[in-house]
Design a protein around this nucleic acid. Structure first.
Lengths: 224, 224
DNA sequence: TGGTTAACGTGAAAATATTCACAAAACCAT
DNA sequence: ATGGTTTTGTGAATATTTTCACGTTAACCA
């Protein structure tokens, strides 16, 4: 088993992987303002975590720095790019040209990270626009399109009652993982990756935790 | 210490809280198609988790069912609504009228969960529209607005270099928690709640885990 | 009406994630 | 060179989350 393969951890360290992506974004910014080296402390400070966490994340994936001089940004970015796969371009289709689908489509930050939104699909004929960039195509052509261009990544941004149907088409056509905005637990084979993002839930939970914080404070006040 | 207060868990069980919100959404749907009762197994099946997890989540927050007959949806929803706070209306401001800000604004699902988007704020004069619903107002009026209407929840959907500034205004004006879409670790007092949502990261990570799955499969193939 | 059993509720155990604590390496000053 | 200092890298300890295992109880049935 090669070292590179061995570094693609899956079962464990999901959260570490997420943080690695964030470290990378920060490093790119730091580099752009002329910084050449930094310590795990600097990274931790910028990311709102601890230096131990940073080093542990790196340790888990075999990323290393220099014992006294910290991390050279160029070196570290190279290691991260190899590990996180910036170098292979990945094409992505979005299904659902509603608010979320269009917001993602317009977001320009994907391309330079190796992700290219190649098409949107929608069931509403009023949204079609084959000459736009990316084009907005009829949902009926989704299967064919994925097969033809060998797309592996999808985004599901359709209402919840349509989501499983869309996913089934994607799976059949050869997609291997999706980001899912529909608020429903989708069913998929074991070798398929689903990343659920539920914006309503995320906002609702803020309201809850704000209330929880208030309760905590009231308790403390009463305790004295 | 009252029982109700005690149920607002904060330090632990963050993930349980998130799931409770999801159970609630599912229960609302189940109710709308006429279902009256269900078992932890049904909930687990629908949510893509296990019945043990469901019962443990409920147990942590004192939610209970019936030993042989499972859960009555109406009862459970009532308990969840009390716990998760549907009943108090919460007003929310969004800062940043870009793609994400507008997508959230247009999303209609918040209102019936007790969340009301009362205004958007933007620094670009071209986006102002005081007579829209919700209105789009100049960023300069953010502080005053929050104070005047005693808003406690905010959404930050501005570019990363503006996010901390916006947050500082919010904190000063009395907001207690935000959902943050800016890809940066914001600094805030300890009694402030921040929920970071990084869509670029979420999509990038799909690409990573798809690749990791492939590697795993290749290994298994080679192992035979 | 009393036995059976399906489902809940929950301590204990296992798995996963984070933090601690310290050895090893690298640099610096002398 | 040598001793002191700073920072990495990582096992061990701790904390948190999930899963297991099983006692309990309410509904059903004979």
């Amino acid at each position: 088993m090669g070292i590179v393969k061995e570094r693609y951890k899956m079962k464990f360290a999901k959260l570490s992987v997420m943080r690695l992506f964030q470290y990378k974004d920060f490093l790119i910014r730091a580099k752009s303002i002329g910084i050449k080296n930094l310590f795990s402390d600097d990274l931790a400070e910028a990311m709102g975590t601890t230096s131990t966490q940073v080093r542990k994340d790196f340790s888990l994936f075999g990323l290393s720095g220099n014992k006294r001089a910290g991390y050279n940004i160029d070196d570290l970015l190279e290691q991260l790019n190899e590990l996180l796969g910036k170098n292979e371009k990945q094409r992505v289709v979005i299904v659902g040209a509603g608010n979320i689908g269009r917001a993602l489509m317009k977001y320009s930050g994907f391309y330079k990270e190796g992700l290219e939104i190649v098409a949107l699909f929608d069931s509403d004929i009023n949204n079609y626009n084959a000459s736009a960039n990316p084009p907005v195509l009829p949902l009926e052509s989704l299967y064919e399109f994925i097969c033809k261009y060998k797309i592996e990544i999808g985004v599901i941004a359709v209402p919840y009652h349509a989501a499983q149907q869309v996913l089934d088409i994607m799976i059949l056509a050869g997609i291997k993982g999706v980001m899912n905005f529909a608020p429903i637990a989708l069913k998929s084979p074991k070798d398929f990756y689903i990343n659920d993002v539920n914006l309503k839930l995320e906002l609702e939970s803020v309201a809850y935790f704000v209330k929880a914080l208030k309760m905590e404070q009231e308790e403390q006040t009463n305790d004295v």
